[in-house]
Design a protein around this nucleic acid. Structure first.
Lengths: 188, 188
DNA sequence: CTCTTTTTGTGACGATCGTCACTTGTGTCA
DNA sequence: TGACACAAGTGACGATCGTCACAAAAAGAG
């Protein structure tokens, strides 16, 4: 919960009134490893602020699962698209460890945003932040080869390499598990 | 300009008051083929609604240019990241044909958004829309092979294949120009 | 209408990366 | 402690795709 205050402060200097308006939208929850915060086909009606642990977002493609995102401590796990438009989500979000979260409720947040200006801005900043994360990851694929992508992650997000098993990183980087393993051995 | 009204209506049912608040932010302009609407290193302080013609967004990577996006009629060309945060843009946006545009000024829009609720919502919807476009294109790379990506574009955005020359599509799809050419001939 | 530039198509070849099969750790649980 | 599941390393092989080189076609410019 302290993490959460720090996170909000990093986005906006929220007044006491703003905090009061935000509070009704908040709850906390813990989930076990393997639990799905969001299921494919559901509408994403919550933002999950991750206090401890991490999650993954994945599409199903035929028999396989393709990871498109990971959410670690002090990040917001959500499907932006579904959350803001109310459409059904095309992917799922699942806890990869036991996690504890701060949950922001969609309908309360939207209502609060209509009445309180700071909350509306906060919503936009959240949206922007998660979108920016997606965009920067997307550009990896357009600008870099497989090796370069791995190198980039090694430099800019080493935590991910340490915590996420290779078979899950594989689809995230668009590189076969074996190939990642070989890139590693070439490096050392 | 009529396109523009239609576009706005597709996002939000703007009241007469809302239109009045929006109007001061608007101007129109024409640019010649080759002109840069946004230069790498500048702050993106305008949204360009494309009335006619199309543009491309591109990064410079060493000697090469890598196209990350195309903007056609009734789309908004911008660098979301730079526009909303005020940071310098890492890529440029250039007219690929002679274009006519409706321009939304950043500072006027932000001010209008603070005073008028509809404008704030409109801003968020624009942000969301352009972000969604980026995300869906990004997922192409994680979910599909080169051939499938081409096939997807053929199905969901045939206009792009018709209007954009292969050497520019190449970097956008992450496929060599020659390979695209071969995929084409295999199909027919 | 020519000349030039740009765009597209094709062939040959090699590098990269994915797939399959198997081995080697590294827990985790009863 | 052994049994089992899961993660990671490794070798062999083939498919895909990028690169280079050149030809054909189309589009612009004067």
């Amino acid at each position: 919960m302290e993490n959460f205050r720090t996170y909000i402060h990093s986005l906006i200097d929220l007044s006491e009134e703003g905090w009061m308006a935000l509070r009704p939208a908040l709850t906390t929850a813990r989930y076990k490893k393997g639990h799905c915060l969001l299921q494919e086909g559901q509408v994403c009606n919550k933002l999950f602020f991750i206090s401890t642990g991490y999650c993954r977002a994945f599409y199903r493609k035929g028999e396989q699962e393709v990871n498109t995102n990971f959410f670690f401590e002090s990040e917001i796990a959500t499907n932006n698209d579904s959350f803001w438009t109310g459409e059904k989500s095309k992917f799922s979000i699942q806890a990869c460890e036991n996690i504890s979260t701060v949950i922001l409720d969609r309908s309360i947040l939207l209502k609060a945003g209509q009445e309180n200006h700071e909350i509306a801005t906060l919503g936009r900043l959240c949206l922007h932040q998660t979108a920016a994360k997606l965009e920067s990851h997307a550009s990896l694929f357009k600008l870099m080869t497989a090796q370069e992508r791995y190198g980039y992650l090694e430099k800019h997000n080493p935590v991910m390499l340490q915590r996420v098993p290779l078979n899950q990183l594989s689809s995230y980087l668009g590189i076969a598990r074996e190939t990642i393993s070989r890139i590693r051995s070439r490096r050392s």
